[in-house]
Simulated assay, not measured.
Amino acid sequence: MTAVLVLLALTAVGTVVPAPVVALGPGPTFDTLGEVEGTPVVSAEGLPTYPTTGHLNMTTVGVTDGISTLRALGMWASGTYRLAPRWSLYPPGESTEQVTQANQQEFDGSIANAEAAALTHLRLPTRVTVGALTDGSPSAGVLEPGDEIRAVGATPVTSVQGLLDAMGTARPGQPVTLTIRRGDAAPRQVAVTPAAHPDDPARAFLGITPATSPAEGQKLTITLGDVGGPSAGLMFSLALVDKLTPGPLTGGRFVAGTGTIDAEGRVGPISGIRFKMLKAREVGAQTFLVPAANCTEAAEDAPDGLRLVRVGTLDEAVGALTTLDTGGTPAGCS
C-alpha cells in the first residue's frame, strides 16, 4: 500500500511540477509568397511586380515551455522532439519578455538584411538609411531611424560600405558633418560627435545600424507576426526576388528552406534544421534549401521524399531554383 501511495505521489508531482527543460520540435511554416491573415508576407510599392506560383516556405523551430516532467519525457520518447535546458533559451537574469524582445530584434535585422540582399542581387538603385540607434548612441537626438545619409563631409555615400569607408578617417570625439534627408524634407547637414568604437577605441562610432533601402518612392515590406530570430532571411530575400522579376522562380514547385542572410547575400547556418525539414515535408515541400554549413547535418536526418539543395549565397539559391526549373541538377547535400 505504501509503495502505491509513493508511486501515486511521484506521478502527481511529475504531472504538475514544471521540468527545468524546454522541448524543441517542428514549428509553424509560412509561405513567403502568400498571405497571413489577409496581409501579404512580402510586398513592394513603387516597383513593378509579377505573378508568382508555387511556394517558398520559411520554416521555424517550435519551443514548448512550462512542461511537466512526465510530459517532457513523453515528448522526448516520441522521437520528434529534443529536450534542452531551459536556461539555454531563457538565460538566468533575463525575463521571458527580454528574450522575446531580443528575438524580435534579430528578426527585424533579418528583414533589413533580406531587403538589402535582394536589392543588391537585382541591381536596383538603393539609399543608405539609419536602421536603428544603439543604446546610448552618440547620434541620439540628431539622427532617427529612417534618416537617409547622403554624405559624410564632402564624400557622397551610396552604400553601407561607402559609409563605413567614409567614416574611416573620422576620429572619436571629433565632430563629423553628415548630409541627411528626413522624410520629404530637403537635405540638410547635421553634426554628430562620434564615440570610440566598442571593439576598437581608435575608430569612430556613430552608434547606428546602417541599412540599405530602396530608392526614393519605392518601398519593400515584410510582415510576419509572432516569429522571432534571424533564420527566415534567405526565404524572405527569395520571395522579393520572385515578386520583382518576371516568371515564377519556383517553377510552380513547393520549395521550403531556411538560413540567415547578410546584406551582401551570404547565407549563414541555423539551428534545428531536422525539425524544419520534418515540418516542410509534412506540409508537402518537395525541395528544401539548406545553408551550406548545415548540409552534413541535414543529409543525416532528411525525411524521405525531400530533395536537399545546398546554398551559400542568395545568388546560388536563385541559380539552384533556375537549374531545377530547366531540368538540371543543383548542388545537393551529402
Rank of each mutant, 00 (worst) to 15 (best):
L10P: 08
L10D: 09
V13I: 03
G14T: 04
T15M: 14
V17S: 07
V17N: 09
A19D: 05
P20E: 00
A23S: 09
A23M: 07
G25T: 13
T29M: 14
T29V: 14
G38L: 07
P40A: 05
V41I: 08
A44N: 05
P51G: 13
T52G: 08
H55A: 14
T59P: 03
G62F: 02
G62S: 12
G62T: 08
T64H: 14
D65Y: 01
I67V: 14
I67R: 06
M75N: 06
A77K: 09
G79H: 05
L83N: 05
Y90G: 11
P91S: 03
E94M: 15
T96M: 15
E97R: 15
Q98S: 11
Q101V: 10
Q104R: 12
Q105I: 12
D108A: 14
G109A: 04
A112N: 11
E115T: 01
A116Y: 00
A116E: 02
T120G: 15
T120H: 14
R127A: 12
V128H: 00
L133R: 10
T134A: 13
S137K: 06
S137L: 07
S139H: 05
A140I: 09
A140T: 06
P145M: 06
G146V: 09
A151Q: 04
V152C: 13
A154W: 04
P156W: 02
T158P: 02
T158Q: 06
T158A: 12
S159C: 04
V160P: 04
G162K: 04
L163E: 08
L164H: 10
A166M: 08
R171F: 07
G173F: 12
Q174D: 13
P175K: 03
T177A: 12
T177K: 13
T179R: 13
R181C: 02
R182L: 12
R188E: 14
V192Y: 00
V192M: 00
H197P: 06
D200I: 11
D200Q: 11
P201R: 03
G207N: 04
T212M: 07
Q218Y: 06
T223G: 11
D226T: 13
G228N: 07
A232M: 12
L234T: 02
L238I: 08
A239M: 05
V241F: 00
T245Y: 00
P246R: 10
P248M: 01
G252K: 03
A256V: 02
A263M: 14
A263K: 14
G265I: 06
G265Q: 01
R266E: 08
I273Q: 00
I273T: 01
F275K: 09
F275T: 01
M277K: 03
K279C: 04
K279P: 02
G284R: 01
T287E: 12
P291D: 04
P291R: 03
N294Q: 08
N294V: 00
E297C: 00
A298T: 08
A299D: 03
L306Y: 01
R310Q: 14
R310W: 05
V311D: 02
G312A: 09
E316M: 09
A317F: 03
L324W: 03
C333H: 09
